[in-house]
Simulated assay, not measured.
Amino acid sequence: MAISAAAPPRWVLLPALLGTLLILLPVAAMLTRPNWAELPSLLTSEAALAALGLSVWTALAATLLCLLLGVPLALLLANARFRGLTVVRSVVLLPLVLPPVVGGLALLYTFGRQGLLGGTFELLGVQVAYSSLAVVLAQTFVAMPFLVVSVETAVRGLDRDVLDAAAVDGAGRTGILRHITMPLILPGLISGAVLAFARSLGEFGATLAFAGSVQGVTRTVPLEIYLQRETDPDAAIALSLLLIVVAVVVISLAYGRGARVAER
């Protein structure tokens, strides 16, 4: 088998293996802990099902919100040219490096009862903080940058000559976006949406700070794991394994297609 000239030297194999083990061993250690016979009952308990149901629908809602807001934002960031664009992009991507609990506090001081916009929402009869809506907003806050990065990268990779040719032929901006840009960036869009869903499903810090932990209302799977780790470690491990399985599936969906395309 021919070896590509771009292949790394053999000495990188050792640190690569150590890096793999650093991730794999903790997961493998967790697999040795549960009582597999009790796993179904642990995952179908009332608390587990309530947390799982809440996590799924809030993550789906957050992903939809990421699509509605993040795709236009990514399109603007990929095409805009103005002084200060780097600062704007840094602010948009801030949740990628910001501790989630800090993001939760920022949301609380914005939408909480005593927050910047909290009073306005209270007058409208809407309580945002410590509600299921707060869970969705917290998940959207931390997940949207993943979609923005994915879509912006896909847009920047487009062949500008194709877009310019369509404009010369008389196509309007909306027509170009609908019939050319969106179909071409669809793989990146799907990957970004899947990653946003996964990040929403695993969100903990911002949710706890902004939404609290009320069973059936704001207590998602990560919060349930946190609470169960002391009182019922087996239940916490069972839910953790469930999230690991979901994460593996999500990563496979997000990157599997790209890997197949690269191999062709």
Rank of each mutant, 00 (worst) to 15 (best):
F204M: 09
Q127F: 13
E38R: 05
A236G: 04
A166Q: 00
G119V: 11
P26H: 04
G70E: 14
Y130D: 09
V91K: 06
V221N: 00
L14A: 14
L93N: 11
A154S: 12
S191W: 01
A47K: 12
A206K: 01
Q139T: 07
L98Q: 06
L18I: 14
S132F: 11
G170K: 01
A211V: 09
M182P: 00
L14K: 02
L163T: 11
A48H: 03
M30V: 13
G188T: 05
V87P: 01
L21W: 13
F82S: 10
A262G: 10
L239S: 02
E263N: 15
A61Y: 14
A47L: 11
L158N: 01
T181Y: 03
L107P: 02
A143F: 11
P72K: 15
G202M: 10
R10N: 09
L42Q: 04
I251F: 14
A2K: 07
A106L: 14
L69V: 15
L77N: 09
V221C: 02
A5D: 09
V249Y: 05
S4N: 12
D232N: 09
Q215Y: 03
S132K: 07
A37Y: 05
V221M: 00
G53F: 12
A138M: 07
T20F: 13
P9R: 02
L158H: 02
L54S: 04
A16K: 03
M1K: 09
I244M: 12
G112K: 08
P100G: 03
L105N: 06
G53H: 05
P8V: 03
Y255A: 12
A80S: 14
A106N: 09
D159M: 04
P8N: 00
A59D: 10
F210A: 11
S132C: 12
S55F: 13
F210I: 10
E203N: 03
T32F: 11
V12H: 03
S132D: 11
L54R: 08
T174C: 07
G172E: 00
S252N: 13
Y226T: 03
T86S: 12
Q228K: 10
V102S: 03
A259H: 13
L253P: 02
M144G: 05
V194E: 02
S55R: 07
T174V: 12
A167V: 01
G125E: 08
T181S: 06
V246I: 15
P9S: 06
V97A: 12
E38V: 03
L65W: 15
R113T: 15
V249S: 07
R83Q: 13
T110N: 01
T218F: 08
W36P: 10
V27W: 12
L239D: 00
S252Y: 13
L75I: 15
L96W: 06
V56H: 12
G216I: 05
D161W: 08
M30N: 01
P34F: 07
A28W: 08
L253W: 04
A62I: 15
V162E: 00
P40M: 05
V155Y: 03
P9W: 02
G216F: 01
G19W: 09
A171Y: 02
